[in-house]
């Protein structure tokens, strides 16, 4: 009984130290700041440019941009829409690439494994750090977008994609749902990143590989001739977060995205274990 207790305490300490390490790393702080800056830039640009209202909806611009002027809420959605294809995946790629390869590169991996820490537990703690980052990143974008939007454009009732109005509070709840959904999507990306990170001792290599995979996945998803491949692509259902902005919300429409994410997590965590548990640690 007492043994179990000791084990638990040790485990939470390892996790806490990992989280602390991630949080104090300068590049992670800079990355979060960059994520938060994008919605602010969008808000300021829209405020300064302020296209005349008669021209609205003609060319459109990216999704949600046309609605920013009337409601600051949409700064957050516009920010998420813009960052989803590159910025958010890069943030996860940085975190995941660092996970194992970073330790190996600094030569700390073998010391980490000399203390009585099982390899599976090491992977689990590393992945837990990635998962936290995956959920935090979209929340940071949304929060900064909401704040910038409220400050520059004010709030008000939110128009759903179906043309109904919901209160600002209900809108925030939907936005939270969007962040959680994207958190799950990015968690799956993080699982792939963790696997890549066990393959190399160069964290940059894993980061770049994961970013390229994401971009390739998006590009393949755009090619209609490859529609047989689309259901298997990791990024295919990321844009489904829009389902949460319809009225009524159909939660079953989110199912394919969540199932895809779950499948990727299962396969690539197994692969990361297969690679890492049997690997000779020399650095």
């Amino acid at each position: 009984m007492s043994q179990v207790k000791i084990r638990r305490r040790v485990s939470s300490r390892f996790l806490a130290s990992e989280v602390r390490l991630i949080a104090v790393r300068r590049r992670n702080q800079a990355g979060l700041a960059a994520l938060a800056a994008v919605p602010v830039v969008i808000a300021i640009a829209m405020k300064v440019a302020a296209p005349d209202r008669t021209g609205r909806g003609q060319g459109g611009g990216p999704d949600f941009f046309s609605q920013i002027l009337s409601n600051g809420f949409f700064v957050a959605l516009a920010g998420i829409g813009v960052e989803l294809t590159l910025f958010l995946p890069i943030a996860i790629a940085m975190l995941a690439g660092d996970a194992v390869a970073g330790e190996a590169n600094q030569g700390t991996l073998r010391y980490l494994l000399t203390v009585p820490v099982g390899r599976i537990r090491l992977l689990a703690v590393k992945y837990a750090g990635i998962v936290m980052g995956a959920f935090l990143a979209p929340l940071v974008v949304a929060t900064s977008g909401i704040l910038a939007g409220l400050l520059l454009f004010g709030g008000g009732d939110v128009t759903t994609l179906s043309g109904t109005s919901i209160s600002f509070g209900a809108g925030l709840l939907r936005l939270l749902g969007v962040c959680l959904y994207l958190g799950v999507c990015l968690t799956a990306l993080g699982a792939v990143g963790l696997f890549l990170s066990t393959l190399t001792e160069q964290p940059m290599g894993a980061t770049i590989a994961l970013t390229m995979l994401t971009v390739a996945s998006f590009v393949l998803g755009q090619i209609p001739q490859l529609d047989w491949l689309h259901p298997y692509l990791l990024t295919q259902h990321w844009q489904d977060f829009g389902e949460l902005l319809r009225d009524p919300v159909s939660l079953s429409a989110l199912q394919p995205g969540l199932l895809t994410a779950g499948a990727y997590i299962a396969v690539f965590l197994c692969a990361a274990w297969a690679r890492f548990a049997g690997r000779d640690i020399t650095s």
Binding site: R56, G57, G60, D63, S66, G81, L161, S162, G163, G242
Partner: peptide, 21 residues
């Protein structure tokens, strides 16, 4: 990230396009 609705309620017919509001 958009929706086009056609809603008929009695004698009212609404067409809504989210792309251009």
């Amino acid at each position: 990230l958009g929706e086009t609705d056609v809603i008929r309620n009695g004698t009212d017919v609404w067409t809504w396009r989210s792309s251009d509001n």
